[in-house]
C-alpha cells in the first residue's frame, strides 16, 4: 500500500455517538429496576477510503449521511470509534489527540470558524508560531504571504472578522489552514454559505491553490455541481456508508447506484444551453434516522428497484470490474437500465 496512492488513508472507520443520560436519570432508572436508555447515533459505519497525493476526492451526501463526521475523523478532530485515519502512512491521531499538522480543515461557516475577538492576522499566525514553523519576529511577513496567496491585502491582518464579507472570511479561513503548511486539506462544505458569484471566486481559489501547492483534498459538499467541478473522484454516502465510489465524470454520466441516480435526477439544474430542467423527479420518502437505521440496505425503503433481499442483507461495497465500486445488490449497470 504505497503512501502516495493512499496519501489520505481511512481504514474501516466507524464512528458512533452515544448519548448517555445524565446521572440522575440513570440513578432513577436503576432504582425502579429499568434499564437506562442510551441512544446511539451511527454516524459513520465501516468506511474505507483513500485519496492519492495531489488528488481531490469529493464526498457527497445529504444530512445524516456522515460526511462531515468522516471529514472530521480524517482531519484528526474526532477520534473514530473503530478504525484509523492516516496521512502519508502516519496515524493522524494518537491517544485521542491529533498527532500531526499535515492535514488541516476548512469549515463551512466562515464567520463561526474565526474567533470574533482576534484580529485575523493573529488567528493566522497562532498555529505556526505555536508549532515552531515560524518565529514570532517573522510572523507578520508570513501572514502577509498567506493573505496574498488567498487574494487579500496584507493590511487586512489588523482587522476583525466582522469587518469582512462572507467570501473574504472564507479566504481568511483558507489562509489559516494553509499557514500550517499542510499536505492535505479537508474542506467541509466550504462554499455552501456563500453567494453564487462569491462561490465561483472561492472555487477558483481552491483550484489555483491545489495547482500551486500540490494539495491533496477531501472536498465535502451536498452540492453536486460543485463537487463535480472540483473532484477527480467522488464518493457518495448514505446513512453512514459509502454507496458508490469512482471517477467523477463516470459517476455523473452513468451512476450505478439507485441513490446516486435518484439524487442526480432530483437536483434542480440548468441544461447546457442554460434552460432549466423542470422535470425533476424527487426521491420518495424521508431520510431515515441514523439512530435507527433500516435493516439491510439503508436505502431500500425509498428505492424504486428494491427487492426482498435488499431489506435483509447489507450490500457490500464491491468493484464491478472497472475502477468503480458500488454497494448494491442490483446495481443499475447490471439491470440493463438505460444510463
Amino acid at each position: 500500500m504505497s503512501s502516495q496512492t493512499h496519501f489520505i488513508g481511512l481504514n474501516t472507520i466507524t464512528r458512533r455517538f452515544a448519548s448517555i443520560p445524565p446521572f440522575s436519570e440513570r440513578l432513577a432508572k436503576r432504582i425502579t429496576g429499568q434499564k437506562a436508555s442510551t441512544t446511539v447515533v451511527h454516524a459513520v459505519e465501516d468506511v474505507s477510503l483513500s485519496v492519492a497525493k495531489g488528488e481531490t476526492l469529493g464526498l457527497v451526501g445529504e444530512s445524516g449521511c456522515g460526511k462531515s463526521t468522516l471529514g472530521r475523523v480524517a482531519a484528526g478532530i474526532l477520534a473514530p470509534t473503530m478504525g484509523q485515519a492516516h496521512i502519508d502512512g502516519a496515524a493522524v491521531m494518537r491517544d485521542g489527540r491529533k498527532n500531526t499538522t499535515r492535514v488541516q480543515m476548512v469549515f463551512q461557516d466562515p464567520f463561526a470558524s474565526l474567533n470574533p475577538r482576534m484580529r485575523i492576522g493573529d488567528t493566522i499566525a497562532e498555529g505556526p508560531i505555536a508549532h515552531g514553523l515560524v518565529k514570532k519576529a517573522d510572523a507578520a511577513a508570513d501572514v502577509a504571504r498567506w493573505l496574498k496567496a488567498v487574494g487579500l491585502d496584507a493590511e487586512a491582518a489588523q482587522r476583525f472578522p466582522h469587518q469582512f464579507s462572507g467570501g473574504q472570511r472564507q479566504r481568511v479561513a483558507i489562509a489559516r489552514a494553509l499557514a500550517m503548511r499542510p499536505d492535505a486539506l479537508v474542506c467541509d462544505e466550504p462554499v455552501a454559505s456563500l453567494d453564487v458569484s462569491i462561490q465561483a471566486q472561492i472555487i477558483n481559489l481552491f483550484l489555483q491553490l491545489r495547482r500551486d501547492l500540490n494539495l491533496t483534498m477531501l472536498f465535502i459538499s451536498h452540492d453536486l455541481s460543485v463537487v463535480r467541478h472540483v473532484s477527480d473522484r467522488v464518493a457518495i454516502m448514505y446513512l453512514g456508508r459509502i454507496v458508490e465510489l469512482g471517477a467523477t465524470e463516470d459517476i455523473f454520466l452513468s451512476p450505478h447506484h439507485p441513490y446516486t441516480r435518484a439524487l442526480l435526477d432530483s437536483a434542480p439544474r440548468l441544461a447546457a444551453d442554460g434552460a432549466p430542467v423542470q422535470d425533476i423527479r424527487p426521491i420518495s420518502g424521508e431520510l431515515p434516522s441514523p439512530i435507527n437505521p433500516p435493516s439491510g440496505c439503508a436505502f431500500h425503503q425509498r428505492c424504486a428497484f428494491a427487492q426482498p433481499r435488499c431489506s435483509q442483507e447489507l450490500p457490500v461495497l464491491r468493484s464491478l470490474g472497472e475502477p468503480r465500486e458500488v454497494a448494491c445488490h442490483f446495481p443499475l449497470a447490471q439491470q440493463g437500465e438505460p444510463l
Binding site: V196, S197, L207, Q208, R228, L270
Partner: peptide
C-alpha cells in the same frame, strides 16, 4: 451569474467569475 455556475465550466477549469463584490 449564470456563467459562474459550476455546471457551466468544464470540470477542473476555472469558473468565470464576476470580479469584485
Amino acid at each position: 451569474l449564470i456563467d459562474s455556475l459550476p455546471s457551466r465550466a468544464a470540470p477542473g477549469k476555472d469558473l468565470l467569475q464576476i470580479p469584485g463584490s
